[in-house]
Design a protein around this nucleic acid. Sequence first.
RNA 1: GGCCCCGUAGUUCAAUGGAUAGAAUAGAAGUUUCCUAAACUUUAGAUGCAAGUUCGAUUCUUGCCGGGGCUACCA
Length: 592
Amino acid sequence: MDLQPLLVEKVTNAVKQMYDVVVPSVEFQPTRKDFEGDITVVIFPMLRYVMGNPVEIGTKIGAYLEEHVAEIRKFNVVKGFLNLVVSDVFYLNFFNSIKNIENYGLVKANSRDAIMVEYSSPNTNKPLHLGHIRNNLLGYSVAEVLKASGHKVYKTQIVNDRGIHICKSMLAWQRFGNGETPESSGLKSDHLVGKYYVAFDKAYKEEIAQLVAKGKDKKEAEKKAPILLEAQSMLRKWEAGDEEVVKLWKMMNGWVYAGFDATYQNLGVDFDKLYYESDTYLLGKDVVEDGLKKGIFFRKEDGSVWIDLSDEGLDEKIVLRADGTAVYMTQDIGTAIQRVTDFPDINGMVYTVGNEQDYHFKVLFLILKKLGYTWAEQLYHLSYGMVDLPSGKMKSREGTVVDADDLIQSMEETAGEISKELGKLDGYSDEEKLKLYRIIGLGALKYYILKVDPKKRILFNPEESVDFQGNTGPFIQYTYARIQSILRKAKNVELSVMETNIELHEKEKELLKQVQLFPEAIQLAAENYSPALIANYVYDLVKEFNSFYQQVTILGETDEVKKQFRVQLSKKVGEVIESGFKLLGINVPERM
RNA sequence: GGCCCCGUAGUUCAAUGGAUAGAAUAGAAGUUUCCUAAACUUUAGAUGCAAGUUCGAUUCUUGCCGGGGCUACCA
């Protein structure tokens, strides 16, 4: 029994009876804490249909509701706001109805359209860095949120495994590597490949400097450096299927994948299906040919194929090179279609890619629409801002990146140091402690990144991210751990009984109100593709719980009925925190 | 130049067009015979500027100012 629909009906009735007009909608908001009441009807919008003074109208409606709706106990009107006091029984009944529901707030799985969520999509020439971490956390979390809102979800990525970037690493390894392997070097395998990417860049810069010293123009030198020319020739060999190059490519990509897998596992993200650019980079060509016949694309004199998007306020965009080879856009058109072919039930895709590609995806989606695919209406670019460091922008070539593996490790270490200082882990084995440091360290990192609106830039301050005070992951985990402690100590409390005639403490009521909002928070987060909404919801819940915890006795000298209720309420709050954090990909500890 | 995104307390983040713009941190002051003080309670502090739409604007529109991005036959 939901209160809001009931109120909509009753308010509409009241207005109809008293003013003989039908208001098309009724606007609600939670009552601000400074006023008495639980839910507020905003009268102002009705003034368009009902002539009169808002206070007077509000008072009339309030009186009507008080008389005709059992759940409304009192009311007051401030300006155009009708504040309604909801009876305790309503909240108790609500709690009673949800307390035994597992996965409260989550919509039944697979009850809505299937959606494919793409995230990560790394290049295979260097290890993952902080930017990938934001991407991975966002993509994974959005996938979980969509699942929780009822969608079937496929998680995927497109691995950028071909191109000049990997040839650079390959060439440098060939030239400077002396047959070094992950085993012989002791390096994590993706870091080994990254090492040679850096080595390439160093050699490349040296060659440029030499050419410039010999009097060449800088731009010219950048284009003509021998090592670059060699990398380009290697790419051509790869495309021609040269056996030796392909063999090297397979070996080094294999190293990178092994390294990525370890990082993904540490981050707790996974995929249902992988797509490789080497398999898909030619895919879109047929579609382009087809679109050309239909007149969606046009061919220029030099043979290149374009689409004219000037009627949409955009420019012309190339979709096929003059030599007939595919560009990025061609590939993405092909991949999108391939995915729908592979998974016919999907109606919608989410692309988790940085905001520097906003324009690309705008164009991609337009092209797919013009090609007439119905699912093209359901595409979403989950665009997110860059992650900056206090020292400035991250640049992989200049070594100013924060490496993903290093960061994860340092978060765990810091969590360990702080936990040791607090010294609460007596009786824990070393293994259990390490597991806990991991939960806390990663929780801090994930929460720090996910609590921010995706489209905003993040200024990543490593020191601040490990702060465990305030609006942080560990703060929430700590509250969860305390709830578990209550439950352990409340073993003897009978939990099946639930009286509905208790008088609620103000803090109990506030907490119940917050719990009640969870399903709404999930739907909102799903509609906006924003894990930040979940993070902020859980934080509010935790604050409400802490305040409740501080002000009422749960296990102490309370009468049995109150004790039962408060223990059950705490348990439910713990469950909601756990569910919420699961949507963010964050684990919760039993103790900390 | 054109297009897109962002400008909120010292700092990091909130706010379906709604009431006195919320938190956290840093600052000041308190609270542990009691279930985990990684907590709680007080306190002080902000919408870049200027117009417009509206009963009402942090939110929508326009202009300006700041920051970032895109504007490749790279991916």
